[in-house]
Computed example of a mutant assay.
Amino acid sequence: MVAVPRMTIAQLAEAAGVSVPTVSKVLNGRKDVSPGTRARIEQLISEHGYQRRRTGARSGPRLLDLVFNSLGNPWALQVVRGVEGAASAQGVEVVLSECSVGRTPRQEWLDSVLARRPTGVIMVFSDLEPDQRTQLEARGIPYVVVDPAGDDEGGAPSIGSANFDGGLMATRHLVELGHRRIAVVGGPRDTVPSRARVAGHRDALAHAGLGADLVRWGDFSVESGHAHGRELLSGPDRPSAVFAGNDLQAIGVYRAAHELGLSVPHDLSVVGYDDLPVADWIIPGLTTVHQPLLEMADAATKLVLALAEGEQPPVLRMDLAVHLVVRGSTSAPARP
């Protein structure tokens, strides 16, 4: 396959039938360009792989754009702390934004990013469309994905955690306590972290020779943990343990158990995932898989800033280790 040559900004202008300043306006996210002209220039950029050179210091403060699919989650606060800590150490400011709908940012968000030309972008549990990735790359704006939701993320540099290992150790802990009927309330079925945690759970069951596979798919919210918990615990053949895909869903399972007159851990053992601060405050304390959110955020910040300086780190995709934190929500089953 013959590679398509990259265009210069002058060649882009000639091919689009516009002036060089007009192309420059599009590259800088300016609004005073007609939609048709903008679309024509963006198409040429996509086809010919134009990429602006990174040119060291820019005027104004150095910025990092940090975008979440949702900011209404205590998980997000941990990531913000990690990013801001690493960014401030290097004199970089952080701009927060939210996808609002789904896990893909709106084009309005991207337009504002292009206009302020940040040092880099960190996506958290979010996806970029191929044309959005092209627009960032064309402007020389590097981006890193934290906790990638998709299978490939278009080959984007990413920092995640060992989700399969976390699901494996959570369920193995329950098996070792003597539980034989273990349910899992996973997160969204269409995301890699959720599927990997459930896959680890299933692997632990298989290695123990257990055929029961009570799988429910939720959305990482307290509400979904509560709803699935009510359904799983209401029947006569209820599980003696539940592995929840995150701590919020585990809290929902706690509430369902309480409403049904079941006590944790005497009647039901519960394991969560993330090890948010609330896991140590609820009663009984939640046994959970510690996901190194602060370390993930720190690593992502350092990686995107290194890319912004033109460095090529030896590793662009990394999964950090997780470990199990045992508290009071798990014990041997009261009934065989």
Rank of each mutant, 00 (worst) to 15 (best):
V4G: 00
M7L: 15
M7Y: 02
I9T: 12
A10F: 03
A15P: 00
A16Y: 04
G17E: 06
V23N: 08
K25E: 11
G29N: 09
G29M: 11
R30M: 11
S34F: 00
T37W: 00
A39H: 01
I41C: 11
E42M: 11
Q43A: 15
G49I: 12
G49H: 13
Y50G: 09
Y50R: 14
Y50H: 15
R52A: 15
R53D: 14
R53T: 13
A57F: 00
R58N: 09
L63A: 03
P74F: 01
W75R: 00
Q78H: 03
E84Y: 02
G85H: 10
S88Y: 14
Q90V: 06
V94R: 02
L96P: 10
S97P: 03
Q107L: 10
V113S: 12
V113L: 14
A115V: 04
R116L: 05
P118S: 06
M123L: 15
M123R: 04
L128N: 07
E129R: 14
R133I: 11
L136W: 01
L136N: 09
E137V: 04
A138W: 09
I141S: 03
I141D: 07
P142C: 06
V144Y: 00
V145A: 05
D147F: 00
P148Y: 05
D152A: 13
G154L: 13
S158Q: 10
F164R: 12
D165C: 01
T171H: 05
L174D: 03
L174T: 05
L177P: 00
L177T: 05
G178Q: 07
H179T: 03
H179R: 05
R180F: 01
R181A: 08
G186A: 13
P188F: 01
S194K: 02
A196M: 14
A199E: 15
H201S: 13
D203Q: 14
L214H: 08
V215C: 05
S221Y: 00
E223D: 14
S224N: 07
S224H: 09
G225R: 03
G225S: 04
H226T: 03
G229P: 02
R230N: 02
R230W: 01
L233I: 07
P236W: 00
D237M: 03
V242G: 02
V242R: 07
F243N: 05
A244T: 07
G245W: 04
L248S: 08
I251D: 00
I251F: 12
R255T: 15
R255K: 13
A257N: 08
E259P: 02
S269M: 07
G272I: 10
D274H: 01
T287D: 11
T287R: 01
H290L: 11
H290Q: 13
Q291I: 06
L294I: 12
D298A: 08
A299V: 11
A300H: 10
T301C: 04
L303T: 13
A306P: 02
L307A: 10
V315S: 11
L316I: 08
M318A: 11
L320M: 10
L324N: 13
V326P: 07
R327L: 10
S331H: 10
S331T: 15
